[in-house]
Design a protein around this nucleic acid. Structure first.
Length: 575
RNA sequence: GCGCCCGUAGCUCAGAUGGAUAGAGCGACAGCCUCCGGAGCUGUAGGCCAGAGGUUCGAAUCCUCUCGGGCGCACCA
C-alpha cells in the first residue's frame, strides 16, 4: 500500500484515478519540470487552496525545488510560470504568489468533463488503482459471544465495514471476516453462567458464579431452555457433566444474536472464522514450530517464550504457559499466519483501544515469521462515551447496565448510528450524544447530507409531474449530454470543482483507512448544494440551462449516494 | 513508574505529506417562505491551536520537556 506515491511517470501514476483532475495536473507539472531539466521533487503537493484567490489548484513545487536547485523559490516559480506553454487541454492560467506558490486556474471544460464521467459511469469515476486488484482481509468486530454487542462494538463494525468498502473502491479485492474465540475460558464462564441461571429457575437460592456474566439475556436463554427441554437438564449427582451442553447452547444463541444485530446494523461478513479450527487443523502447533525454526522461541521457568523484544516489542511474551496450555496470543499468531497462507496480500485489523498494547507484539510475530513490515495494519479506535441528558451512560458487559447496539439502532436508526460512529477520526474519543442523534432537526448532520440527496430527487419528481418531460430526461446518461457550459455561476463552479475532488478524496481516505474524511466531504458537498439550490431555480423556461442544472443536481446526488454508500448509510429519495 | 492515544471557538470536532489570513456544525444573537421540500439559506459574535523550548524560508502539524484527560502494561481473553 503506497502511502506515498511515486512521482516518476507522468503518463500514469499508480494509485491515482487516471481521470482525476488532480492526477492530470500533477502529471502536467512533472512534464514541465522534465522539459526544464529540473528534477521531480520528492514530495509534490497539488491541492485545492482554501482561498479561491489562490486559484483552483496550488502547488508547492517551487518551494520543494528550492533546496535541490539552490535557487530562491520565488524565482523558480516565476521561471516555471513563464515556461508554461499555452495549452488547450487543462490549464488556463498560472500565477506565482506568496513565497513561491504556483497557482493554477483550469479551463471550465475540465470540470464539465469530470461531471460527465461521473454521470456516465460512477464506478469507473470513483475507482482508483491503489489496490491494483490484490487481496486484503479486513477482520473486525471479532467480539467474543459472551453478550450482546454494545456501542463500542458498533464503532468497530462501522469502521471495519466502511474501511472495507473504501478499499474496494480503491481497487482491492476485500474479504470481511469475523474471528470468533470459541476456545477460551470466557466461553466456559459463559456456559457456567447459563447453567447457574437455569438452576436458579428451579431453585432461586442457587448461587451465581464469581465473575460470571450477569446480563439479563442469559436469564431469557435459560427460560427458553427450560420451556423447550424441561427441568431435568442437570444431573444432581454430577452437575459438571452438563456444562458442555450449556456452553454450546449459550455460544450458539449468542453468535446468532450477534449476527442478527449486525444484520440490523447493515454489516455482513463474508466469512466467520472459529478459533477452534486452528487447534483442529494443527495450525497452533505449526505457528509455534515456525517461530521456533526462525530462532524466535526459547524456554524459561517451564514456559515457552517468544523473543518479541528482538522484533520491536518492549518485552518477551509467553506462548505456552508452564501448565502446558497456550496463551491467547499463540492461537492469534496462528490465525494471522493462516490469513497469510490463505494468500491475502494485506491484512487489516480493527481493534479497540484496550488492545493497543497488543499491536507491537503481533507486529513482532509478523516480523518473526518474515512477513513484509506493512503486511498487517491495525486500526486502533478509542472508546465511545454514550451521552444522554448530558450524562455519560456507563457501559459494562458484565454488570449488564448498558445500551446494546440493537437498542441503539431501534432508537435512532442504523443510518444515524453509523454516521455518528464514523464522523470522527478513529483515534479520538467519541462522544455519542443520544439526544442529538434522536433529534430529527438541524442539530443532526446526517439529515443534512441525506436531505441533499432527497432534495435533488424531488426536483426530478417535480419535473416529471409537470408532464413535459419523461423519465429518460432525468437519467444520468442523458443528462451527460447537456450543455454544461451554461453552468457559469460561481456557485456552479464551486460545485463542479468539489465533485472533481471526490475521486481523489476516496482514494486518500482508502489509503489512510480513514472513513471520517468521506463524512467531512459529504458535509461540504451538501452545503454547497444547499447554497446553490437556494440561489438558483433549476426548473425553468430555458430548457438548455435547465438541463445543465439537472445534470449538476444529478451529479451531486450520485456523489452523495456513493459517499453515503461507502459509509454504509442509505440515501433516501424522500424523507 | 513505563508505553500508546488525545488536548484547536461556550459544546462536539475537522484541519491531508509541515504551506499562504485557523475552519465547520451545534449553541447564542439578528434576519429570509406569493418561488423546484424551511430537515434549508443569510449575517454577527466567539481563538495566545494546553504550556515552554527546539528544527526551518515556513509549525496546530515534526522533536524534547512540563501540565491535564483516556487506555494499556498477566504464564487473562
Amino acid at each position: 500500500m503506497p502511502s506515498r506515491l511515486p512521482n516518476g511517470s507522468p503518463a500514469g501514476i499508480p494509485g491515482r484515478p487516471a481521470s482525476s483532475v488532480e492526477e492530470r495536473l500533477r502529471a502536467r507539472i512533472l512534464e514541465r519540470l522534465d522539459e526544464l531539466g529540473w528534477p521531480a521533487p520528492g514530495e509534490l503537493a497539488v491541492e485545492r487552496p482554501r482561498d479561491p484567490a489562490h486559484g483552483d489548484w496550488s502547488s508547492n513545487v517551487a518551494l520543494a525545488l528550492a533546496k535541490p536547485l539552490r535557487r530562491a523559490p520565488r524565482a523558480i516559480a516565476e521561471e516555471l510560470a513563464r515556461a508554461w506553454q499555452p495549452e488547450p487541454g487543462l490549464v488556463d492560467s498560472v500565477e506565482v504568489a506568496g513565497p513561491g506558490f504556483v497557482n493554477f486556474r483550469l479551463r471550465p471544460d475540465v470540470y464539465a468533463s469530470a461531471l460527465r464521467k461521473l454521470l456516465l459511469d460512477p464506478d469507473a469515476y470513483l475507482r482508483s488503482d491503489a489496490g491494483r486488484g490484490s487481496s486484503v482481509i479486513v477482520e473486525f468486530v471479532s467480539s467474543n459471544p459472551t453478550g450482546p454487542l454494545h456501542i463500542g462494538h458498533g464503532r468497530n463494525a462501522a469502521l471495519g465495514d466502511a474501511v472495507a468498502s473504501l478499499l474496494e473502491a480503491a481497487g482491492w479485492s476485500v474479504t470481511r471476516e469475523y474471528y470468533f474465540n470459541d476456545a477460551g475460558n470466557q466461553m466456559e464462564t459463559l456456559g457456567r453462567s447459563l447453567q447457574a441461571r437455569y438452576s436458579q429457575l428451579l431453585d432461586p437460592s442457587t448461587s451465581f458464579p464469581e465473575g460470571g456474566y450477569e446480563g439479563e439475556y442469559l436469564v431469557r436463554i435459560a427460560e427458553e431452555l427450560r420451556a423447550e427441554l424441561g427441568d431435568g437438564l442437570i444431573d444432581a449427582s454430577d452437575p459438571a457433566a452438563s456444562l458442555p451442553f450449556f456452553q454450546a447452547r449459550a455460544a450458539a444463541v449468542m453468535v446468532e444474536s450477534i449476527r442478527a444485530d449486525l444484520e440490523v446494523f447493515g454489516v455482513r461478513f463474508d466469512s466467520w472464522f472459529n478459533e477452534s479450527c486452528l487447534y483442529q487443523e494443527g495450525l497452533v502447533e505449526r505457528a509455534l514450530e515456525r517461530l521456533r525454526d526462525r530462532g524466535a522461541v526459547y524456554e524459561s521457568q517451564g514456559a515457552v517464550w517468544f523473543r518479541s523484544s528482538a522484533y520491536g516489542d518492549s518485552d518477551d511474551r509467553v506462548l505456552v504457559k508452564s501448565s502446558g496450555h497456550p496463551t491467547y496470543f499463540l492461537p492469534d499468531v496462528a490465525y494471522h499466519m493462516d490469513k497469510h497462507e490463505r494468500g491475502f496480500a494485506r491484512a487489516v485489523n480493527v481493534w479497540g483501544a484496550d488492545h493497543h498494547g497488543y499491536v507491537p507484539r503481533m507486529q513482532a510475530a509478523m516480523a518473526a515469521l518474515g512477513y513484509e513490515p506493512d503486511w498487517l495494519h491495525c486500526i486502533v479506535y478509542q472508546a465511545v462515551t454514550l451521552l444522554e441528558g448530558g450524562e455519560a451512560v456507563k457501559l459494562s458487559t458484565r454488570k449488564a447496565r448498558f445500551v446494546t447496539l440493537r437498542e441503539l439502532v431501534q432508537e435512532v436508526g442504523a443510518a444515524v448510528a453509523r454516521y455518528f460512529l464514523l464522523m470522527r477520526r478513529a483515534d479520538t474519543h467519541l462522544n455519542f450524544d443520544l439526544d442529538v442523534a434522536r433529534a430529527q432537526s438541524d442539530e443532526n448532520p446526517v439529515y443534512y447530507v441525506q436531505y441533499a440527496h432527497a432534495r435533488s430527487q424531488s426536483v426530478f419528481t417535480r419535473l416529471l409531474a409537470a408532464g413535459a418531460h419523461d423519465a429518460r430526461d432525468t437519467e444520468p446518461g442523458r443528462l451527460a449530454g447537456a450543455n454544461l457550459e451554461r453552468l457559469i455561476l460561481p456557485r456552479e463552479g464551486d460545485l463542479l470543482k468539489l465533485l472533481a475532488e471526490f475521486p481523489d478524496l476516496v482514494r486518500e481516505a482508502a489509503v489512510a483507512r480513514e472513513p471520517h474524511r468521506v463524512a467531512g466531504f459529504l458535509e461540504r458537498l451538501a452545503k454547497e448544494f444547499h447554497i446553490w439550490y437556494h440561489e438558483v431555480r433549476i426548473l425553468g423556461e430555458d430548457v438548455e440551462l435547465m438541463r445543465a442544472r439537472l445534470a449538476l443536481a444529478r451529479g451531486v446526488q450520485i456523489a452523495v449516494r456513493r459517499g453515503l454508500g461507502l459509509l454504509g448509510i442509505s440515501a433516501p429519495e424522500a424523507m
